[in-house]
């Protein structure tokens, strides 16, 4: 009798094991209603990035006419020597609005909006992030760098529909990219790939961090003749398309 039970038990455990392993967060992709085209070029303690998202709602079986889409970037920077997250600035509120895990929306002090390339007057700085629309890619440009050796940089790019009659404030896609500076000062790309489940939750936490901080922030002056806003602007509720 016992001899018959063991093979059945083994089969059951195998199936349960397979199900468990295959549904680990790394196996579950996040929303991807289009195509990402990513280019990362390592330099001297730096990494030049072009991260483009071409929105094609049919990719995810949805319908949406988005007249303007753009990218929000959140970053996670870590120094291995100190075993801690590092920030480029205190004035931008980066550490104050970081999640408990160290992710923070990537934005300069003085820029009131969390959208990576959105100026205070509501136009987009095309040097940072020209906006896109259906079948017209939006591209984020970044050149993070300058950190000391043994630094790791993780980023999540999130494309959102900024203007639309039907799908405004919907998330269209997520993309993860990363690079590091090793002990000898060499920069190398680590992993660049579609994001996985859990990062979308981390993103929502970073949005909450931004929204909690924004009303308490000081006046935002990005210079260049842009309007000075009394404080940073909260993000609307952003949900997957």
């Amino acid at each position: 009798m016992k001899k018959k039970i063991y093979p059945q038990l083994f089969r059951l455990l195998s199936i349960a094991g397979i199900a468990f392993i295959c549904f680990l967060p790394g196996c579950q992709p996040t929303q991807e209603c289009g195509t990402w085209t990513f280019t990362g070029t390592p330099g001297d303690h730096s990494f030049s990035v072009s991260s483009a998202f071409d929105f094609t709602p049919a990719t995810c079986g949805k319908e949406c006419n988005c007249t303007t889409d753009c990218i929000i970037q959140m970053v996670w920077v870590y120094n291995e020597e100190d075993g801690t997250n590092v920030y480029a600035s205190d004035q931008s509120g980066a550490s104050a609005r970081a999640t408990s895990n160290g992710w923070t929306i990537d934005q300069l002090d003085g820029w009131a909006y969390a959208y990576y390339g959105l100026n205070n007057d509501g136009t987009f700085d095309t040097g940072y992030n020209p906006p896109g629309s259906n079948n017209n890619a939006t591209t984020l440009f970044d050149t993070p760098g300058g950190w000391p050796n043994n630094t790791l940089f993780y980023a999540l790019d999130v494309t959102v529909c900024y203007k639309s009659n039907t799908c405004e404030n919907r998330i269209l896609g997520y993309y993860f990219w990363s690079w590091s500076i090793d002990n000898n000062g060499n920069s190398t790309q680590f992993i660049a790939a579609p994001a996985w489940k859990d990062l979308d939750k981390q993103f929502q936490d970073a949005v909450t961090g931004w929204n909690n901080w924004a009303p308490t922030s000081s006046s935002q002056d990005e210079g260049g003749g842009q309007p000075v806003l009394p404080h940073a602007v909260t993000l609307p509720t952003l949900t997957d398309l």
Binding site: C22, G26, P29, S178, F190, A195
Partner: peptide, 18 residues
């Protein structure tokens, strides 16, 4: 995982990064 993440290499990369 291939089905969900398009290919095994992507899945492995995601898992490594995670």
């Amino acid at each position: 995982c291939d089905i969900k993440s398009k290919n095994a290499a992507t899945r492995q990369s995601q898992e490594k990064a995670r």
